[in-house]
Design a protein around this nucleic acid. Sequence first.
DNA 1: TCTGGGGTCCTAGGACCC
DNA 2: TCTGGGGTCCTAGGACCC
Length: 448
Amino acid sequence: MSANQHITRSDRPLPSTPSNASEVAADKRFGIVDCNNFYASCERMFAPHLIGKPVVVLSNNDGCIIARSNEAKALGIGMGMAYFKSKQLLKKHDVAVFSSNYALYGDLSNRVMTVLATFAPRIEVYSIDEAFLDFQGFDRWDLDRYGREICDTTQQWTGIPVSIGFGATKTLAKLANRLSKKTPGMDGVFDFSSCENPDALLSTVAVGDIWGVGRRWADRLQKEGVNTAFDLQQCDPAMIKQRFNVVLARTVQELRGVSCIELEEVQADRQQVLCSRSFGVRVTDFKDMRHSVTHFMTRAAEKLRKQNLLANVLSVHVSTSPFDDNNEYYSNSCTSRLVAPTNDSRELIRLAQRLLKSIYVAGHSYQRAGVMLSDLVSQRNLQQDLFNQDDGVERSDALMTVLDTINSQMGNGTLSFAGEGFGGGWRMKQLLRSPRYTTRVSDLKTVS
DNA sequence: TCTGGGGTCCTAGGACCC
DNA sequence: TCTGGGGTCCTAGGACCC
């Protein structure tokens, strides 16, 4: 780290173990398992001829590239690259291209998580392709060997290759996981605590590659001479808290081996539910816009009911493309509170349509729209309305249950609201989606 | 022609209350 | 002339994650 006036090193000696280590029964130890190139691996599961070949998966609406196999990465295909800009390159190297197929990825993710849960007393499913495992008390275990067993078993039972990192904190485990994939010879398993010269290793990691340090902060830190994970670890947390914020200060502590971010086994209730999409083609007609917003509202209400939640607040937003230089950018949203919390699609649709009317301005070519539900409350401890004595709520529940049951048993969209319209160019493009191999009987793979 | 979607946490500042 | 202090709630915006 170069000398500078702003960032001062802490004079305190770095703790080799958490300072309160004597008070806890055993040192904390976290593992993070991460599925390698998850979406691409899922596609390969049912297309084994693609093993060893470059594969990419596109975002919703076939907009940009969001997952790449190692072979695709090696060709210089960047994450987030616009699909239309990379078509030539993809074609030239005969890259297999898929639209995203979340039904498939979600199902395979569940299988992976089920396997992982058998290897540790506690598991936190952190994202569709990652899970933290609790290995507190595993001090005497050969984690390197155990890690290899976890990877081998998961791959064998689910077909998805994974890698694992161990560390005294979540941040160090993430870092170990990253190193396990980047360092030849580690082969997807690395225990940071077993490292003989951690300072040297931390010096090889760019500050922006640390979990919790995004682009903005990486830029700011680098301007002040903090370039590597080692540099950041040497910073005084109090100074970081003052000059950046408490979140980054925690990251500094975590890099020092002081665990600040706990394992969260049970998922907290959601605070908001969103449904928002880009359109397959620009929308210039109010009727199409109303169809799309009604459709998004229907999906959001389904999500709400699936989690037994009710919403108090609804907002609707619309916008034109920020990339369109020829037309004026327009973006607007409108928020409203419901009279009483609800998850009834009909009521939410009615309000959403009203809100849409207030922000829709004719003459624009709209690129996206969406709805957001917030101030969510659990259906179980709903405050009863003293003045509403009719049986509306029960009837609404019954109707929504019927709707959801039919759609879940007979396929999404079996029953839909007239307001959603039929077809419509605004529905997203998914021209290259693979079959829903594991969640639809009609899409089952056949062997001839 | 064509640029994803869905979340979280934290902070600052204003309104309002006693 | 003089114009408190402490607290909560809400919102917008900025940062991050996958």
